[in-house]
Design a protein around this nucleic acid. Structure first.
Lengths: 318, 318
DNA sequence: CTGAAAGCGCTTACAG
DNA sequence: CTGAAAGCGCTTACAG
């Protein structure tokens, strides 16, 4: 208790403070704090007493600086508004927790500039690893960081111009499942609703074309390049959607007509709208866990060539 | 290029390495890196050349250790599966970015033990501030950290047993809006679906009781303590739900009957189920921004007594 | 304009 | 069993 009104907070006690209060050397405090052997019970008690009295808590940042690692991973998403990204993060966090890592995170809003600034800021803090949902464009700014030892795994989309691990859903397989399902129901005019460009939509579109051909149906590129406005009046009896957002947009766009909808990725309440929406489902949490485990293995020294892991999908027909 | 196959990554160059390559003192490198004045153009050029050659990137963690701050905030949520928490995080991140902070984050799954471990781990890393969605129970473990200078703001729920800032939606007002709306539509048997206990449900329930009385309707505690199972067969013509999750549960529970539903917090697609679901809406992103701004102000030295900020709600009738 | 020394709060390597 | 010194990679305070 000080006699004066304390306006600013008291400085944190350090090991040095603990040492002088306990009347021992710094190193002895370090031994006690780290549970290293070779300290008399009496000495230990005195040190613990001083720690208690002073309210000492070791500064992990300082410890980690000396140690050379940070026990920190960085996660970079498009946006937290997308539940898919939040779910990936959830899976990653569970792995990080198991292995004693803390997580930095940030979102890019799909802006490559923001991605680069965020990644490099995290690397400057010397994160041990990085998990990135890549924005479009080159990621070669990361090459020197990866060479310097930052383990890097890309999720949901593969990186461009950099060799690194990637974990994503089986999009090709998902497109095939969706189209085969709709074709089996007798649909012949099947559209695809997604972004004009970008990895996910390109891959899904290619899968659609493949599956349409396999089903003996014509491939109409116009129908495979729908947007919400065009969908509203498009000559389709069924539509496959690239993600939750597009699935919701489709539900609104065809609310007044009977168009079958299949979404890539499950959507809450999709089973309760009418007609109910089927989905090609996969587990984004598993993507996060898989990416985390891969990263941990890399940090443990796994030098195998970059891997690409595809998480399985399954059809939920409604 | 080394002659040997490089299996482990080369160590990162330090300012010391840059200094010796440029033939200057460490301090001169520091001056150049920090853009401090008083360095000859020629010297600057030599230093920049060495930086370039070596691929030097300053270690921020080391800089921050010396500086005494970390330019880092910590965010602790229940779960990323809850879009409300993800949205709060989104708002917080925008403020953090504006002010040059990086964010640690983690989730508790509503486990007080996990919250404490996470908070203290972040404090041990010496975060400048903490934004917490508090789990139930006491938060007095944080008192010493707050006294040590960790700015702390609670969001979505107020803390227990610790004086600190809090930012949350106007729950009382939301309950009144919901009940008044339903009463005006002629509903007389109105239930509440939420957790048996916990801040949100308690507050909403109290608001319901108040509003029911104000509307001249009887207050039936059984109807204010519904769960999904009881709701399915409860004698209600309308139900008010504590959050997205309970709103979705209600939609399923009364799918076969005509029961009016009002949710606290908007739910995607709620307008497209039938009958459409009305909501008391508020902006969780704004909660995150507000909490972030409050924290930044505290870090700037604002010593005013702890504040409690309630974010406005509005009814979206459907 | 430039630099040698001390220090941020710890750990590592070594000595007694 | 205990400790004095050096060092992690930077910045601060001071001297020339």
């Amino acid at each position: 208790m000080s006699n004066q009104m304390q306006v600013v907070s008291a400085p944190r006690p350090t090991m040095k403070d603990v040492a002088s209060r306990a009347g021992v050397a710094l190193k002895t405090v370090s031994r006690v704090v780290n549970g290293e052997p070779g300290v008399t019970p009496e000495t230990t008690k005195r040190v613990l007493g001083a720690i208690e009295d002073l309210g000492f808590r070791r500064n992990e940042s300082a410890r980690l600086l000396r140690t050379g690692r940070t026990a920190t991973l960085g996660f970079i998403a498009d946006t937290w508004a997308d539940p898919e990204h939040a779910a990936v993060y959830q899976g990653l966090e569970s792995i990080a927790r198991e292995h004693g890592y803390l997580l930095y995170s940030g979102s890019t809003d799909s802006d490559p500039g923001r991605e680069e600034r965020l990644s490099l800021a995290m690397c400057a803090r010397r994160v041990d690893g990085l998990i990135i949902v890549p924005t479009p464009g080159s990621h070669d700014y990361l090459v020197s960081e990866i060479e310097a030892g930052v383990a890097t795994v890309f999720v949901l989309r593969p990186p461009e111009l950099v060799r690194a691990d990637a974990v994503l859903p089986d999009e090709r397989g998902g497109a095939r499942l969706a189209i085969a399902h709709l074709a089996a129901l007798g649909h012949r005019e099947i559209g695809f609703l997604g972004e004009p460009d970008g990895h996910r939509s390109r891959t899904l579109r290619a899968g659609c074309a493949e599956a349409l051909t396999a089903a003996g149906l014509p491939v109409d590129q116009a129908l495979l390049h729908l947007d919400a406005a065009r969908l509203a009046s498009a000559e389709v009896s069924a539509v496959f959607c690239a993600d939750q957002e597009h699935t919701r947009a489709a539900i609104r766009a065809v609310a007044s007509r009977r168009v079958a909808i299949v979404g890539f990725g499950d959507v809450p309440l999709a089973d309760l709208v009418s007609p109910p929406v089927s989905v090609v489902s996969y587990d984004p949490v598993l993507i996060g866990r898989t990416a985390g485990e891969l990263l941990i293995r890399r940090l443990a020294g796994d030098q195998a060539p970059p891997r690409r892991v595809e998480v399985p999908v399954r059809l939920i027909a409604r």
